[in-house]
Design a protein around this nucleic acid. Structure first.
Lengths: 154, 154
DNA sequence: GCCGGATCGTTAGCATGCAAACGATTCGTA
DNA sequence: TACGAATCGTTTGCATGCTAACGATCCGGC
């Protein structure tokens, strides 16, 4: 029960650590590689659009983009039509890293699931999708026992 | 393939967010609840012991413990026999939170896996265990294309 | 009995997430 | 046309992870 959550957390953590290790060999951290993955397909997105696709918040994208800009992976350009928007464009350096990074990611995923049969992978995918659907559908108020602001401010 | 990793990451993130939300209702953040979980069973552990059980690093435990100390959840005591050691002891406040927090955690896990059959849960558990074993057994050098530190004995 | 290596916890600096507050720009409406 | 509301990106501050460097303490040989 709770055990399943623990296993899921542990597996994800091991995968993330391995991914960060692999990505670091290519001069990119694990979070940045997710930004790259989207921009490789859709260059020139805004921070807000990127955040929506990655299921993270806009400030997180902004901060990551700033680090990537320092690393020479992307540049910011103001949208000529709408002064509020900023568009993120990849540099040649970022594009050159696409092939090896995608290869590293593929190899990692293959290694992680190497001991699973095709049927086990299908079951795993199905179960994860059910959990994701359940958790994102309605964020119903679990544990209404203690209202949010009432807990011991001291 | 890579898709499985993505699903696993997404599911874990949703679970963690829901857990943090639920725990916050009890004045505890998601990382702190893991420390509590261990100390409820084994009070007086050292930061190093705690880190080993939680599969995190000692500095992370130290920082979390400092925040929990500020929140009045635990106290540090020097080990009388070994001056290098620090032992973390829970306060009555932390002990009082055990029941409701465990209940909240149980409810969350139940909700997350509500749409899974018992068989699906067994399959999920089995697959996750295989991934964990594969990732933690030998951290073999994935992606040897770009060596990390210029050279390595092989 | 002393001293150098081993073993601790801590600190510092970074990456990745979040929420909240702020500032600039655009848009709809009066 | 001008002004208030909506929509952006950014900044700030925090929590949780990590590695590397540091300092204090202990232990085994000499």
């Amino acid at each position: 029960m709770t055990e399943l959550v623990r296993l899921l957390t542990r597996a994800q953590k091991l995968l993330r650590a391995a991914a960060d290790d692999a990505m670091s060999r290519h001069g990119v951290r694990v979070g940045q590689n997710l930004v790259l993955e989207v921009l490789w397909e859709s260059d020139g997105l805004t921070p807000g659009e990127l955040a929506a696709r990655l299921h993270i918040t806009t400030p997180t994208v902004v901060n990551t983009a700033t680090r990537m800009e320092s690393a020479g992976l992307l540049v910011r350009r103001k949208d000529p039509a709408d002064g509020r928007l900023v568009r993120l464009h990849l540099t040649p350096k970022a594009r050159a890293a696409q092939r090896p990074i995608e290869e590293a990611r593929r190899r990692l995923a293959e290694h992680a699931t190497a001991t699973l049969t095709d049927e086990e992978r299908r079951h795993l995918r199905s179960a994860l999708e059910k959990i994701i659907k359940q958790m994102s559908d309605e964020d119903n108020p679990l544990d209404p026992a203690v209202p949010k602001g009432t807990s011991s401010p001291e």
